[in-house]
Design a binder for these strands. Structure first.
Lengths: 191, 191
DNA sequence: CGTCTATTTGAATGTACTCAAAAGCGGTGG
DNA sequence: CCACCGCTTTTGAGTACATTCAAATAGACG
């Protein structure tokens, strides 16, 4: 079926050919256009997305209309509203394509089957969530301990490929500041 | 061996008596006094702690001496510097006891054995990390989208048992603001 | 080419920090 | 059991960081 997702699996687990084809039967491919919405805030999320090609953004819009970006996902990343997905509750997030993208979808029911039939996926997602947890914990530390300028420079340094694809307004929404303020930081930071 | 940790395991997995006693052999008990340090920033963390009784704090101190709290752990919580623990790298965090506490330690090598001998622990920690990830992702959203006052009220509402045990200075270090500013928020918020 | 959105700029305002000093509180030793 | 000590909390003045609003400029896209 697909290359990249099986390479992704193989980072942490080994699958036989027959297992691979079984896994394939639980996955489905989806092509989306730029700006297409995959999950809308308020819905229940029942898909776990893997980005084969392209990029996605997961963001929240609050009562005042302010947009806050939770994460961006490039090729080879997994993304979903984990809270909504695992607890099957109403989502706080909207997930949309930043560009034309090719995704692999794993839906909630199929993931439960996968855990049951191929327990090695417990291990795979254990490691995936472990890394996600580490990333988010690090982000929490940065958010509470660094200045906005430091966090901006850090973001650019850490995710250069992301910076290529997104606007400054979107970086601002990831950092939790206004686009105007980010603009003034950039100016100051360049001098 | 211990009650609470096996109740904690049983939230997500089922263990036979013989499995329980095997698991016990990989765990060790540790009693610590108030202010005792379990992990010091700069060391490599090789223990995963479960709090049977008492409470812990994990925090970072930056170059300027500013303290930032990553998490507090009460009874029935797991805590470690996950980054340092799983990647066996130098820790950015110090973990210390907020009061006399009783802990269960699972060390890095034993956890690898546990994954191998009882793969059901892959599932257990998959769910644990999944929940930890959800919590941290939610925290990231709060950090970038809410005012400090909202985050303070939220913290108090969400972790009332924690608030009992910690100082306002520590809450401030979790929220990423100065104690002086938190004091002024409380005053304003009370009126 | 025209339209829409992103980015920049600046002034005014509000949020949060720094520093310093006073008040409150808890623990310890006498 | 009280007095003292150290740390936390409060208060306030001055400064720095960040937002809001408005307007001008620049880019992206059909």
């Amino acid at each position: 079926m697909d290359h990249l997702i099986f390479e992704n699996f193989s980072k942490h687990i080994t699958l036989s050919d027959s297992e691979k084809s079984y896994v394939s039967s639980l996955l489905s491919e989806k092509n989306v256009l730029k700006k297409e919405v995959l999950l809308r805030q308020g819905q229940t999320c029942n898909k776990f997305f893997f980005v084969e090609k392209g990029s996605l953004q997961a963001f929240n819009i609050n009562e005042d209309g302010k947009e806050s970006t939770i994460m961006f996902a490039l090729s080879d990343w997994w993304i979903t509203d984990m809270d909504s997905f695992v607890n099957q509750t109403t989502s706080n997030l909207t997930i949309a394509a930043l560009e034309d993208s090719k995704l692999i979808e794993l839906d909630f029911a199929n993931l439960q089957i996968l855990y049951k039939e191929l327990p090695v996926f417990e291990r795979f997602f254990r490691i995936l969530f472990q890394n996600a947890y580490i990333r988010e914990q690090r982000r929490a530390l940065y958010n509470i301990s660094m200045t906005t300028e430091e966090r901006y420079l850090q973001f650019v340094k850490k995710y250069p490929a992301m910076v290529e694809k997104i606007t400054q307004k979107q970086i601002a929404s990831y950092l939790g500041v206004t686009p105007e303020f980010l603009s003034s930081i950039k100016k100051k930071s360049a001098s």
